Simulated scan of single mutants.
Amino acid sequence: MTLHMPAETAAQDRVWMAFPSSGYTLGDTEAEAEAARDTWAAVARATSEFTPVTVVVTSAQTEQAQAHLGEGINHEITIVNAELDDAWMRDIGPSFVIDEAGALRAVDWVFNGWGAQEWATWDHDEHIGRFVADLAGTPVVSSDLRNEGGGFHVDGEGTVLATRSVQLDPGRNPGLTEADVEAEFARTIGAKKVIWLDHGLHRDNQTFGTRGHVDIVAAMPGPGVVLIHDQRNPEHPDFEFSRTLKEQFASETTADGTPFEVVPIPAPEVLRDEEGWVDYSYVNHLVTNGGVIACTFDDPMDAEAAAVLERVYPGRKVVGVDARELYARGGGIHCITQQQPSIG
């Protein structure tokens, strides 16, 4: 069986999300819980302008989800029930691929709480990939790789971005080599070339991070084009990493040998929050049909970043959603969404 994962710019039938239900995602107070619900719902509503959205919600949070999402009023948002630990659908959901006959399939990675982190639970979330695939009526391609959707990025033509600190993490895949991961990526998502980054952003490699997801670092908006998180302030620990990434991609090629056009997209000017150095990133956006759902941070760089996205996604409407409440909980807009490509 030959499989390939379409680029995120390909036509989509649906976007899948999960609704915050418990733990640190909701926070310690009702005000924090409402901030989380409001932000997840804002992303769902913005996405639904372009693509139908299905949101997985725990039974205990159904009324809250209905109130925030407007199901029944906004007919492009549907609620389904399943138990959840967390709300990062990019990571707990399946990665949709197309087989050689043009049929949709869903790769179900092994989810183990971002490398069995002490603060994570995943008794429910490890089943969400298959749950979503079943609702989509899609055959499952099982993988033994401990992996998350935010841990890799594809251009739809065989080029894959990944980080050694994720797929080769001893907490995820002890003993696996780059060649082992590349072979599994070739089998499941049609990888022809994997471009390895050493790690992710500074904050994402701290205690409550993912250990280095690529989807806040770099993205390929089209074949031969790469967006790079550009931290321009030398005070921030990601400054040198951004420089290294630009140098790396200046000498990299795609799977078919095309040199990359490197497009820096600025980091926000804000450097710190109450927890330390921020990993705010405009790279972490959702492309869906005629739209781009982009992170904003009430920051002077919001406008410049939007202009970059408009340039690399011509003909699509860039819609900003304030993502600070997402990043306070560990991720961005790309992290809470998972696209289902169209077939036929």
Rank of each mutant, 00 (worst) to 15 (best):
N112A: 08
P268H: 04
I98G: 07
S281C: 06
H202F: 15
V56N: 02
I265G: 12
A133I: 04
I73C: 11
T78A: 09
Q338M: 12
G23N: 10
V160L: 11
F260P: 00
D123I: 12
A87L: 06
V107H: 14
L69T: 13
V140T: 06
L3V: 11
R45L: 01
S95I: 00
S281L: 07
P234T: 08
C335M: 01
P174N: 03
R146T: 07
G72F: 03
G102L: 09
R187E: 05
I189D: 02
N289G: 05
E269A: 15
P341E: 02
E182G: 11
H229Y: 06
E49P: 00
P237F: 12
G212K: 12
G158H: 11
E261K: 15
I79E: 04
M17D: 03
Y327A: 14
V154E: 01
V214A: 10
G212N: 08
V154R: 02
D279R: 05
S165V: 00
L197P: 04
L161I: 05
H127E: 05
S242Y: 10
I343R: 14
F241V: 11
I336N: 00
A35N: 04
L326C: 07
V312W: 03
A42C: 09
F96G: 01
T121K: 14
A133R: 05
Q167E: 11
F50I: 00
W119V: 10
I189P: 09
E178Y: 14
S281H: 10
K192V: 10
I216N: 13
